[in-house]
């Protein structure tokens, strides 16, 4: 555990010292600013639009960090050959991967927390009520981001950064369309299409499951059971993928 924390701490420091993060936070500030502007323009539905845009911005920024920094976690260490001296220490490869994941995971939590706080401030400043559903939505955004990060890390253990980014983005898009895929599969006449699409539906992570932004924006609470199931699903899936990443990473030559 100590080794994991040491690696996590260093990952945290590295990412913080990388300017990328600041840019993304700036981006979030801009988006939230725009939502305030838009909100003042549209009378009546102001609250819903501010909520919608704010949550979407947080989600987008968090996922972008997860994908792009997530892929760099391991590939950068391999490209720069810093991994040689780390793995030459009494630390297992699993500890290394978990430390990397934990380090970025912590950054993501902090980031989402900061963005969410800024968002709540804009909501409050624009004179709207802060609804409890917003907290539900942001919790599931966090779970989704942690899952996407695991996927990015997984791909990066065996493929190039560009390929990993493409595959993660692809899976992200599919992950949001799985229910549509299932619907198509059920309606499809062709046996083959049905089998393929149903397989995709069950294998790919169902990210739409963790998307309650729409309801949250209009202040509709999600049932506690749904919230917990979605959280458990996301975290378990992330754990599974992380296990896969460790297995692959353990076999690698450097």
């Amino acid at each position: 555990m100590r080794a994991i924390l040491v690696v996590a701490g260093n990952t945290y420091r590295e990412t913080i010292r990388d300017k990328i993060l600041y840019n993304l936070v700036l981006f979030a500030i801009l988006l939230i600013g725009t939502s305030v502007l838009l909100g003042t323009l549209t009378i009546g539905e102001q609250s819903r639009i501010v909520n919608d845009l704010g949550l979407a911005a947080i989600n987008l920024v968090a996922v972008i960090i997860a994908i792009f920094v997530g892929i760099g976690l391991v590939t950068k260490e391999m490209e720069r050959r810093t991994i040689y001296t780390i793995l030459a220490r009494p630390i297992t490869r699993v500890q290394f991967i978990l430390g990397k994941y934990l380090g970025l995971g912590f950054i993501i939590v902090v980031n989402i927390a900061i963005m969410f706080a800024m968002f709540l401030a804009t909501v409050w400043l624009s004179g709207n009520a802060i609804h409890r559903s917003l907290f539900q939505a942001v919790e599931l955004i966090l779970v989704e981001t942690l899952l996407v990060m695991a996927i990015a890390l997984f791909f990066s253990t065996f493929s190039s950064p560009i390929l990993s980014a493409t595959m993660t983005l692809g899976l992200y898009v599919i992950g949001h369309l799985t229910s549509d895929l299932k619907a198509i599969a059920d309606k499809s006449q062709s046996q083959l299409t049905e089998v393929v699409l149903t397989t995709v539906y069950y294998v790919c992570p169902n990210l739409e499951f963790m998307n309650v932004k729409g309801q949250a924006a209009s202040g509709v609470l999600v049932e506690a059971v749904y919230q917990m199931t979605a959280t458990a699903y996301g975290l378990l899936y992330a754990g599974l993928i992380l296990t896969g990443a460790c297995l692959i990473f353990q076999r690698r030559d450097f």
């Binding site: 100590r2 040491v6 260093n10 590295e14 720069r80 810093t82 040689y84 001296t85 030459a88 220490r89």
Partner: peptide, 27 residues
């Protein structure tokens, strides 16, 4: 202890932080 050939290290760390990090890794 291992020194790889043409080593390249975490360039965002200072020399002191760098040694400290490896000290921590060594427990």
């Amino acid at each position: 202890g291992y020194l790889p050939e043409s080593p390249y290290f975490y360039d965002y760390l200072t020399a002191e932080e760098f040694l400290c990090f490896y000290g921590k890794l060594a427990g």
